[in-house]
């Protein structure tokens, strides 16, 4: 039996897909939390209160200026000291929480920049129209500015999501068994790493291309009004 037939089996694929689930879960939770953090940080960045702008800038610059792997390690080693009883959680839960927290906070910084530029790309006339109708700052923001800004931010947010799926592989270095790690586990079983790595690459590609495809459809649906 050739080495290909030995490694490229249904069981191994199922194992890898199982691992890919972890990558996806990490990325999905992080992109949602990141969007949430990003919106709040973006609001701080454009706020009139200087201290909020200042803090938001420090956060964004710190995250964007340091490696994500380093950030993950900080949370992996830092969370047990920060949270009582963290060490009593199972190892995989510890890794998962550190991974989600690290990735969300990382994604929050990038999303904040995207959302901020989205908000600021909305014409001043939209604010003025809202004001002239007697609406408050928050109403204008929520009902007029953010819906339009989010629409403009969809394409870069999808790219951010795809980056997160790929970057979730970094969580393997603090001990998570996600897609990349899974392929290495298979590799060590057969003393052949190249073939499982290519299998993982296929799965990454299937995921990312599918997301791009549906993102394009989503964008089209939002385009009804322009």
């Amino acid at each position: 039996m050739s080495i290909f037939a030995k490694i490229i089996t249904v069981e191994n694929f199922i194992y890898l897909i199982d691992c890919a689930k972890n990558s996806l879960i990490l990325a999905i939770i992080s992109v949602i939390l990141g969007l949430f953090i990003g919106t709040i940080v973006a609001a701080c960045k454009i706020s009139k209160i200087r201290i909020l702008r200042y803090l938001a800038n420090i956060y964004v610059e710190f995250i964007r200026g340091t490696p994500m792997l380093l950030q993950l390690l900080i949370f992996f080693f830092g969370l047990p000291q920060l949270i009582p009883n963290y060490a009593s959680l199972s190892f995989s839960t510890q890794v998962f929480i550190a991974g989600v927290v690290g990735m969300s906070i990382n994604s929050g910084a990038y999303s904040a920049e995207l959302i901020r530029s989205g908000i600021q790309s909305i014409e001043a006339g939209q604010w003025e129209a809202g004001k002239s109708l007697g609406m408050s700052y928050f109403k204008i923001m929520r009902l007029i500015i953010l819906p339009q800004a989010f629409k403009r931010v969809i394409p870069p947010m999808v790219s951010e999501f795809i980056v997160l799926i790929k970057d979730s592989s970094l969580v393997s270095s603090i001990g998570a068994t996600e897609l990349l790690k899974g392929s290495q586990i298979i590799g060590s079983r057969y003393y052949n790493y190249i073939i499982p790595l290519f299998m993982a690459a296929c799965i990454y590609l299937i995921i990312t291309l599918t997301i791009s495809y549906f993102a394009k459809k989503l964008e089209k649906r939002f385009q009804i009004y322009d």
Partner: peptide
């Protein structure tokens, strides 16, 4: 006084050169 301004604006219609309709 934001509150007073909002109340006043409710009683004043403003029409802009660029319309400024809400596109969404």
């Amino acid at each position: 006084n934001e509150k007073q301004l909002r109340a006043l604006r409710q009683e004043m219609g403003f029409v802009f050169q660029q319309f400024n309709l809400f596109p969404h």
